[in-house]
Nucleic acid binder design. Structure first.
Lengths: 193, 193
DNA sequence: CTTCATTTGGAATGAATATTCCAAATTATT
DNA sequence: AATAATTTGGAATATTCATTCCAAATGAAG
């Protein structure tokens, strides 16, 4: 009976989160997204609600994709420290290989919207606690394997690592090159001993 | 002959940089600033040019104020490590005492505008290199005093410390409380040994 | 007090922008 | 092929916003 949708929800969210990442929430117009996504205004409004609702959905989509990547990382390697190293390596490579990608949607959202939009803040906080939870597991595993010997509570180190991750995204937009980012990661990881 | 200005340039830039910090560049209207600053549209345009020019001037003003504070810190204590500790303490206190202050204008600008505006990028890069220069001096002094024993080049540590500073501004907008931020700083400083 | 270079307030303009709306197009089913 | 549920394109609307402009206000100097 009904005509089928010509687009996939996730495909649009992928595009929207990309545009929002480049230009921020207030810097992107609905038209900007339509132009790239190639679907009609009415379809967009019908499927995603208004611009703000689309933004929140884009954040959630982006967060889930990010966490999926972490999940894949989690299954690949048995070794806790290795997982942590791989994560930083992946972030580093992404930042270095996509110099015009404008960092990370969630970091940008934290800077632009966190204090103005409760839902944005929620996604950001959820992402933080989910990532830190995984980091905590990996750290505990690494400690058990005697790969590292932590002098302070594991949770503290997970905050520390997450902080470094946030910093890297800002640094990559402040003129730091890959070599510099790499050296920051090296020092961060050496602090685990 | 001419009527004197009723406002001070720096006073307006103080207000403008504050509004831009809260709402971002695209999120603030010229009216938002006028309302808080209490001067007329024509005066603003006459003295500062258009909105974008005002934004860049606000960034520069903010950067200079920040660096002045660093300068004061620099004269207060003779001891390199103490200066570094005081800097982190000051940042920590500011973030904790101003939970609605939306972090740091320069970090927010890096996230929102760095890739879209060359001048914004310049101010951000200048701030980075100026701060890192000071950090390098302090680190060298601390090393000379045998307060710390660095295993890698000093410059690497200055990048690392600056990265932590950037991270803290993002973390404070991602649900981290003062205790958590403090623990990140503690781990960062302990990495200097 | 008068003059006049300059600032000021706020109305006016024009361009973007978010959102709504409906006639036309589409396609799975009959 | 005809039907009908649903999507689609794009015009229409209303709002916000940056910027311009000029008459009125200001106050230092003569």
């Amino acid at each position: 009976m009904p005509k089928n949708k010509k687009f996939k929800r996730e495909h649009i969210l992928e595009i929207a989160s990309n545009v929002f990442k480049q230009k921020g929430y207030n810097g992107t117009s609905v038209d900007d997204i339509l132009k790239v996504a190639g679907l009609s205004r009415s379809s967009l409004y019908d499927s995603f609600g208004d611009k703000h609702s689309l933004y929140v959905q884009s954040l959630e989509y982006y967060k889930n994709i990010d966490n999926e990547k972490l999940g894949i990382l989690n299954t690949n390697e048995a070794n806790g420290l290795k997982k942590i190293e791989k994560l930083f390596e992946a972030v580093l490579n992404h930042l270095a290989e996509n110099p015009n990608d404008n960092g990370c949607l969630l970091v940008n959202a934290a800077a632009e919207m966190s204090k103005q939009c409760f839902k944005t803040n929620q996604v950001i906080c959820n992402n933080k606690s989910e990532t830190e939870k995984l980091l905590t597991e990996w750290l505990e595993n690494a400690q058990k394997n005697k790969e590292i010997s932590l002098k302070k509570p594991v949770k503290q180190y997970s905050h520390f690592l997450y902080n470094t991750l946030c910093g890297l995204r800002v640094m990559s937009q402040s003129g730091a090159d890959k070599k510099e980012l790499k050296s920051i990661v090296d020092l961060t990881l050496s602090a685990l001993n």
